[in-house]
Amino acid sequence: MPQNQLKKKFRLGEVIAEKVVTIVAFFSLAMITLIFVFVFRETLPIFYGADAEASSVPAQIEQQETYGGEGVQEVAMQSKTSSHDTEGIASIDNLTGTTWQPVSGKPKFGIVPLVLGSLKVSLIAVLFAVPIAILAALFTSSFAPKWAKELMKPAIEILAGIPSVVIGFFALIVLASLIQNIFGYQYRLNAFVGGVALSFAVIPIIYSITEDAISRVPGSLTEASLALGASKWETAIYVVLPAATPGIFAAVLLGIGRAFGETMIVLMATGNAAMLSASLFEPVRTMSATIGAEMAEVVFGETHYNVLFLIGSILFLFTFVLNAIAELFVRQRMMKKFQGI
């Protein structure tokens, strides 16, 4: 019975392959959970254990050894004792304050300007990106001749592939001067420049998901509309676009998520001053840029370190909620409402 044996062997391989795929899938799920748990665990000391730790460290000051210092002339302003050896206290009052001065004699961890900064820059980016990306997607899927479509799609996909540090550098050197010359405001680097630069990163995301959504609109709808005498433009605006609304909504939400989490572009282009102001043309400091800039040199286990993780948790929750809305709400509810097909 050689044939029978062959069949059995084949099935064994199949079972193994299936198990491997399952394990890999669950592995990525486990990774996300672990990251989630890790980020939150590092946040916890803000709310617990902070005072217990403070009392356990004895306040002894001993002289540090030096080496090779003979004949080195001390200069008048040398080595003043660092003014910020004290660890800050992250009370709720301090965290909800409006000053972000984490390296200070009295550290101030007010995250309000950072949250507002993130929202401001993301809003500007999305306001720029949404019309451009949706209109571009509508053009390529409904109006563009074949050659234009074949040119535009890869071009925008290449835009998605540009490393964000390159976009940031471009904004820092070129875009900032350009926009300043047009508007003539005082601060060269500001929320507006950052938002415009950020929209370069958001456009490809919104574009490609919107494009998918539009091309998934059943051909029967377009054909029916055209057959009833509607023009190409009327069909696109009144039939195709509404039918694709759930997908476009999801695209916009994912775009906001990307804008919110993007670090390098805002770090380079927004000026990074944690100031509270309603003006679009003043510098801002975003949450992601704050983590990106400060995490590398923070003293591990200090309050500042924990507060950075708290900001990370907020970012994580925000993008998580956005993605969840995009997935659940849009897929389940809006699909039914708009696509009663």
Binding site: S83, H84, T99, Q101, S104, G105, K108, P113, Y187, L189, L267, M268, G271, N272, A273, A274, M275, L276, E282, P283, R285, A293
Partner: peptide, 12 residues
């Protein structure tokens, strides 16, 4: 030891 003004832009 005093704090920087909030409008000071932090450059990388």
């Amino acid at each position: 030891g005093e704090d920087y003004a909030a409008s000071a832009q932090n450059m990388p």
